[in-house]
Amino acid sequence: MILSHRLKALLLAVFAMVSVPVVSGDTYDIDPYHSSVLFAAQHFGAGWNYGRFNEFEGTIEYDASNPAATKINVTIKAGSIDTANAKRDKHLRSPDFFNAAQFPKITFKSTKVEAKGDVMHVTGELTMLGKSNPVSFKLTKTGEGKGMQGETLVGFHGEGSLKRGEFGMNYGIAKGALSDEVKLVISVETVKK
């Protein structure tokens, strides 16, 4: 029996669809009570000053058998910035920096993940002060366990940096008061849905 070219093409397309497995990872909620979002900026070229955000939420879709399929979505409340100095925190919430009243949310959504074992190189879109730019960081799976109620927990640790001037946060850069580069350290514990 001779098959027409169209029928052959259709059969090949159907075979390709059914032979490619659909990989779907589990979804994990970030536990804000056992997680940290930290940053650091250099002051007048000398010490690095650290701060944190106290309010954030998000999900990580993760499949240990296919880490490259990982997807990350995070939302941070800009007004929750905390540097252990009330006067400085008030200034950081102002239009000179995060302008938290006008731009209350900072968001990150991953667009690409390259994985080697438990180490992932994550690229995504960070939106801050109404501007979106790509950022990249290294993310490592740190471990997993069971919580008090038997829930599945998975930990991740990430480090990277960004240039705040790319988002329009230029205060203090020209005079060298604060570095353009901001270091990021993210350590999260997640709970399987």
Rank of each mutant, 00 (worst) to 15 (best):
M1P: 10
L3Y: 14
L3C: 05
H5W: 03
R6H: 09
K8C: 10
L10N: 03
F15V: 14
F15Y: 09
D26M: 07
D26A: 15
D29F: 06
D29G: 04
Y33M: 12
Y33Q: 15
Y33H: 14
V37H: 06
L38H: 11
L38T: 13
F39E: 11
A40V: 11
Q42R: 15
F44T: 05
G45C: 08
A46G: 09
G47Q: 11
G47I: 11
E55F: 03
E57M: 05
G58M: 05
T59M: 01
E61Y: 01
E61V: 15
D63H: 08
A64T: 03
A68D: 12
I72Y: 05
V74H: 01
T75Q: 09
I76W: 06
A78I: 02
G79E: 02
R88C: 04
K90I: 00
N99Y: 00
A101D: 02
Q102E: 08
F103Q: 00
F103Y: 14
F108P: 05
K109R: 08
K109E: 10
T111I: 06
K112L: 11
V113K: 01
E114F: 08
K116V: 13
G117Y: 01
M120H: 10
H121E: 12
T123Y: 02
L126V: 04
M128C: 10
L129N: 08
L129T: 00
G130Q: 01
S132P: 01
N133H: 13
K138V: 14
K138C: 00
L139Y: 04
T142Y: 09
T142D: 01
K146F: 06
G147T: 01
M148F: 14
Q149R: 12
G150Y: 05
L153I: 15
G155I: 06
H157M: 09
G158C: 03
S161Y: 08
E166N: 13
E166A: 12
F167R: 05
M169W: 00
N170M: 09
N170E: 06
A174I: 07
G176P: 02
L178C: 06
E181K: 15
L184G: 05
V185H: 10
I186Y: 07
V191K: 12
